[in-house]
Design a protein around this nucleic acid. Structure first.
Lengths: 234, 234
DNA sequence: ACGTTAATTCACTAGTGAGTGAATGAAAGG
DNA sequence: CCTTTCATTCACTCACTAGTGAATTAACGT
């Protein structure tokens, strides 16, 4: 593996030290949760990765679930702010006349850029998110809690771009979009093998190039002008 | 919860009994793995669910991973056969002139029907598969091992339907399709809350109604007639 | 009926997991 | 300097995990 154990440079200030240690813990946890999921990681694994005693994690976080939440939340606020801003900007720029592809670009490309340029941490976070999104138990609820506002903002724009389209169609369209995005962020390497090396899981640029247009066309197709306008007679 | 512990009717024949027990174990494991993933389930959980001693599982399966593989494999062969046949049939029917949507319907609708009508077991299996598909470690490899042939058959048809389309575009398109499908099978309930009850995670029919057309339009859009025919001048 | 074989449980082991409360050590601050 | 505060480790606990090998029980063939 690339990075197995990082040096722990002792920081001066007390508050600084504290913040640094917490960040290291979250980084390590993020890395491991991304690879093995919540139950596939022990607090000892996390502690070993940064060379501290495992009970130190209990000192900073009430319990394992709290740590998981902290990991998830840390970057969620960042991506949410960026995306929300991108959607707002786009809405303003188009003076309330957005296109589907434009809205999707604000939503997708903004994020893909982040994962592409944000370094290993962001990529780990993405993989972790993909697992959460596909976890029925508490996963979906976590997604709700953290991402509903931005998603609903996107939906709003999509509605504007598709006037007269049945709401269900828009929600199902979003469902397809998010499924595709999550699998991208999971970076499982499956597409690499499947395509014989032609496509690379890590290639966010390739996804960015195609995804918004692909999905926009899908929306256009399932959102026919006026959806089922009271079906009369059989 | 709906079914917590099923009665274990003792079967007559020895081979029959054996087969039945194994099936019960796999059912229980499937149910639990779908909910909590590999590491979130203990052999005792599985055993308790059907009222047997947990070491009985070690009697029938070498270890936990073997059990997991068995659960995964049991239904994989069924869906693979159905899908392969559907693709072959469609290819024959169209005399080698498939459409993208037709090929996708053979691939997607066939499976969605199965999950819709196959009962709780199939639905659990789907949720489990979604988690596997988004698990970077051994998950992707498992998908490769079990599903590559059918997927490559689909890709073949898509290539025929989109002559002159760059291969990468087709693979990325498939990637989007499978991501969307996996999230559907995960049945996390997220879309229910998001849409305020307008859409239901369990509603495979709604997905079937939209998915193939949605994705076909996507393919049509990213697979422009001839992809990047040596880009001359800027 | 009887010895054989297979299914199932039992008694254990060796190791791991999360978490707690006390002990240690090092900086901060007056 | 001396005390207080905080970060970190230590020594434990309690519950649980996967897995093993022997014991038990029930069906099978003869």
């Amino acid at each position: 593996m690339a990075s197995e154990k990082k040096a722990r440079p002792k920081r001066s200030g007390r508050a600084e030290q504290r913040a640094e240690t917490i960040d290291q813990i979250i980084d390590a946890a993020e890395y491991l949760f991304a690879k093995n999921g919540f139950y596939g990681v022990t607090l000892k694994d996390v502690a070993n990765r940064i060379g501290v005693h495992h009970t130190l994690i209990n000192y900073y976080f009430d319990d394992k679930k709290t740590l998981f939440e902290a990991v998830f939340a840390r970057r969620a606020v960042v991506t949410n702010e960026r995306r929300m801003k991108a959607l707002d900007d786009y809405d303003r720029e188009t003076r309330g006349k957005p296109t589907v592809e434009g809205a999707l670009r604000a939503f997708l490309d903004t994020d893909l850029d982040l994962y592409q340029t944000g370094g290993e941490g962001w990529r780990n976070y993405g993989a972790m998110g993909a697992q959460v999104a596909n976890t029925p138990q508490w996963g979906a609820a976590m997604m709700d809690r953290h991402f509903d506002p931005v998603v609903l903002r996107l939906i709003e724009l999509l509605k504007k771009a598709l006037p007269g389209c049945a709401e269900e169609d828009i929600f199902w369209g979003y469902h397809f979009v998010t499924g595709a995005l999550m699998l991208t962020l999971a970076r499982t390497g499956r597409i690499d093998k499947l395509s014989g090396g032609l496509c690379k899981s890590e290639d966010y640029a390739a996804v960015k190039e195609r995804m918004a247009a692909f999905m926009a066309a899908g929306f256009a197709t399932i959102c026919t002008p006026k959806k089922r306008p009271t079906p009369r007679a059989k």
